[in-house]
Nucleic acid binder design. Structure first.
Lengths: 242, 242
DNA sequence: GACATGAATCCTGTATACAATGAATGGGTT
DNA sequence: AACCCATTCATTGTATACAGGATTCATGTC
């Protein structure tokens, strides 16, 4: 039993009934918040002790996390937090541009009043949070906007794919964000995007999304030298992160 | 213990070591071949007896099949073979057109000689199989072409998404294919597609795929009256298919 | 000191037992 | 006959035990 588990996941112990879904949510969130860095070992018994359940439940949770590309699960080996390579990061962004662009184009001019209000509220919330320097809250609002787009997608299949891609890009954003860059906030991007959606021009909306995501990707440090991160994660022997 | 299991899955029993992957493969294939119709109950113990393993292994297999959208797994209920609705079928095709079109566009003019040969061989095999009326073999070759595209995709993330979409569309093709229509063979489509890929024009390749998939979808019977299939599957009380 | 070898340990893979939930069944009432 | 309720059965959810593979560490050899 090492140290990270207590600090990161202790809060959950208070919860009454823990199911595999809870574990998935908590771990996913911890990875997203970089409290569980890539390469972190996730042994089944340890996780079970932390959450107060047996390995059966943990195993199911880990399998689902693996299918979400959050952890790496190889036969006879400890599950570890995944460390997507630079190449995969680029490919994930490209896939998301394609899918989210299409979703935006399908959604253009089709938003009902309620959805528009929810989106606008999140956009305002993001700006506010950024204004008062509350980065976690800002990320929360930004993610909410994109998740809302996925949820509202008229094509549910594409919507589900987008949900997955948003998660994966969020993880790599946390991973490859410039260390000195506090925020990945693109002033006004979301606002103009929503305007395009209301306007109803599918191609403008699609391009709006593509541009937004390209700018986001450009904020990351994907230079080849960072490839060492992968090596460290793969070769890393220490039980903590490299 | 009912009857379908013996006939459909008995062949596996001879195999030496059965892992969850084997079960996933076998069940997926059986669903694809319509030997396990939508709504079929897949109880864990029964499956375990058929394959000669315990519920632990079966459970893992079912979870993976659920994440592949092959079976429906609801809490405290028997897993059943999924019956995608008409609406979902349309959405799946739309998603596949988007993704496979992009993959084709990325692949245009980038095929190395070996890949070209493999694709051409499958295309020839499909035509031959169709010539001698061997529909299962024809489907096999046709699927191989598309799976090869997914595998060759320069963008691996899109490739994996495409693999999933090919499976899902194949299942609904089997489901909604005109009863009297023996084949979903579109003469020459694959050949001209490969020509476009070699030619190297990304947009021609993309449109080739989109047109091919639209034609395929048009061959299906997606008229609203068929919605009864879903009801039967959902309400079906009999242990066999509705 | 570097490297190979072996044992001890950790961890996962699988099977099984028990608890809990949901569906099917049957009897009784209107 | 139709409906309601309690009981029974089928099936999943969870915990645990044991076996096997992987990793780690200590020992011995070059």
């Amino acid at each position: 039993m090492h140290e990270w588990q207590e600090e990161v996941l202790a809060e959950v112990r208070a919860g009454s009934r823990i199911s595999d879904r809870d574990i998935v949510d908590k771990v996913r969130r911890a990875v997203l918040m970089q409290r569980l860095p890539p390469g972190t070992r996730l042994p089944e018994v340890t996780l079970g002790e932390v959450f107060g359940v047996s390995r059966s439940v943990v195993r199911k949770a880990l399998t689902r996390l693996a299918s979400e590309h959050v952890v790496d699960q190889r036969p006879n080996q400890v599950a570890r937090v995944r460390a997507p390579s630079i190449e995969e990061t680029r490919e994930t962004f490209a896939a998301r541009r394609l899918v989210e662009g299409e979703v935006a184009s399908l959604l253009a001019g089709r938003l009902d009043a309620a959805s528009r209000d929810r989106l606008a509220a999140e956009a305002r919330g993001e700006i506010e949070a950024h204004g008062r320097g509350d980065e976690p809250a800002r990320i929360e609002h930004s993610l909410a906007i994109h998740h809302l787009l996925a949820e509202l997608s008229p094509n549910r299949v594409l919507g589900a794919m987008l949900t997955d891609l948003i998660l994966r890009t969020s993880i790599v954003i946390a991973l490859y964000k410039w260390a000195n860059l506090a925020s990945c906030f693109l002033e006004g991007d979301h606002t103009t995007l929503l305007a395009a959606l209301e306007q109803g021009d599918a191609e403008v909306a699609r391009e709006g999304i593509r541009h937004h995501l390209e700018s986001l990707e450009a904020l990351l440090d994907l230079s080849p030298r960072e490839a060492s991160i992968d090596l460290k994660a793969i070769l890393g022997r220490s039980r903590e992160q490299a």
